[in-house]
Amino acid sequence: MFDWIPLPLYTPTYFNTLLLVALLILLHASQYDIRDRTSIDFFNITGYFLVVLIILFIGLRPISGRYFGDTSTYNQIYSLMESGQEVEIRKDFVFNYFMKFCSNFINIHGFFLLVSIIYVTPCLLFSKKYFGQYWFFAFFMFIASYSFWSYGTNGLRNGLGTAFFILGLYFYNRKRVMYIFFATGYFMHASILIPIAAFLVSGFYKNPKAYFYIWLASIPLSLAGGSAWISFFGSLGIAEDRTAGYLTDAEINLEQFSQTGFRWDFLLYSASAVFAGWYFIFKKNITDRFYIHLFGIFCISNAFWILVITAAFSNRFAYLSWFLMPAVIAYPMFRYKIWNDQYKIFALILFAYFMFTYFMNVIK
């Protein structure tokens, strides 16, 4: 484990390491051409090293509820399972039975390491499939995203659910396999129903303008409706009890969530991906079927979050779209020729994208 890193510095160490990598990419882009074979080889080696480091750093973190949220809760449940005590499982069946199975063979640190592998690997596979020899840059955007760290160390079930959704997208052209992974993600955490529903809707009605207008309309609807939307979705029973509780148990959750209300900063963060999709599809005429589908999933899922943005713990719903932001922003830039000096522009975009993460997690 990384016990030699003081707990207060553990999370900042992660983000400061990524800051160094982001600066390296920015500096490299100012001097070299990404198509150069030496550059590609360099970032391949750097990328694999970073994959291993991130898996180990997340998986072998110390057990601390103060610094890693639900890590201590999972540790307590795992200890009960290890001791042979009966633990009733009524929801998130894949995750809980997986935890119960692992408790027969490995300790809690081994379990968290295995969870880390499952969490990080789909991002790697997705990046390698859709970005080819430039996979490192997409992968870096995934791990440099605002909530990636927290859902690898705190909201594990949410994080694993989205990981299996990404793995499903890896098998986009093999529908049966894709839906199996979607279903697995749902039974990891029921909130994955939201991006699954967005996937189905945007796959059935293939009109990116409609997705864009849905997203735009959600902003005034949220400002006007406020708590009415929270009550409405909370009453539908579309998710398991704890997930629905993020919407309805306002007084309880307010004690645990430091900032509520209409989060304009998070809305602007989401808008960066919507703007990217709008720009690439409508201004640069990208007609890629997979990309348009991704854009639809993001817009619909993010619109749902905007409608409930004032709820305590609405960040749990924000992640159900945010986990796709790296793909929405980066995909066209490594599949199509869009600008001159495209690598330099991407490096600037990536750096700005990461700096939001760095500011919110380290500086703020």
Rank of each mutant, 00 (worst) to 15 (best):
I5R: 02
F323W: 05
I58E: 01
W4A: 10
C102N: 10
H109L: 07
Y186R: 03
G226K: 12
S191N: 05
W339T: 13
C299R: 05
G132W: 08
F275E: 01
H109V: 07
G237A: 05
P62V: 02
F262R: 05
I230C: 02
L223I: 15
F317Y: 15
A330E: 02
T287F: 06
F187T: 09
T121H: 01
Y130P: 02
S202Q: 06
F98K: 02
L27S: 05
F49W: 13
M188Y: 04
W215V: 00
Y48A: 01
S145L: 09
Q85K: 15
M360S: 11
S103F: 10
E255C: 00
W215G: 02
V177D: 01
I252S: 08
A311H: 09
I77M: 10
E82L: 14
L348T: 04
L20W: 06
M1G: 11
L169T: 05
L23E: 03
R263V: 04
K209D: 06
K284G: 08
A138F: 11
L169F: 13
F212K: 11
E86Y: 13
N285S: 12
T357H: 11
Y319K: 00
E88I: 11
A276I: 04
F101I: 12
I309E: 04
E240T: 08
G132N: 12
S222E: 06
L9S: 10
N44P: 00
I55D: 01
P62F: 06
I34P: 01
F359T: 09
L9Y: 14
I106L: 12
F187Y: 15
T46N: 04
N285F: 09
A244M: 14
F112R: 07
Y336E: 03
A183K: 03
I25W: 06
F137M: 10
I63L: 06
G161V: 07
Y134P: 01
S202G: 04
A352Q: 04
S321Q: 04
R242Q: 15
K337S: 13
I118D: 00
I117R: 02
F2V: 06
F93N: 03
K337T: 14
V51T: 10
S147N: 10
I292R: 15
F2L: 09
I5M: 06
D265W: 08
A163Y: 10
L80A: 11
L50G: 03
P326Y: 09
P220T: 12
H189I: 03
T71P: 02
S64T: 07
R174T: 07
T46W: 11
L324T: 04
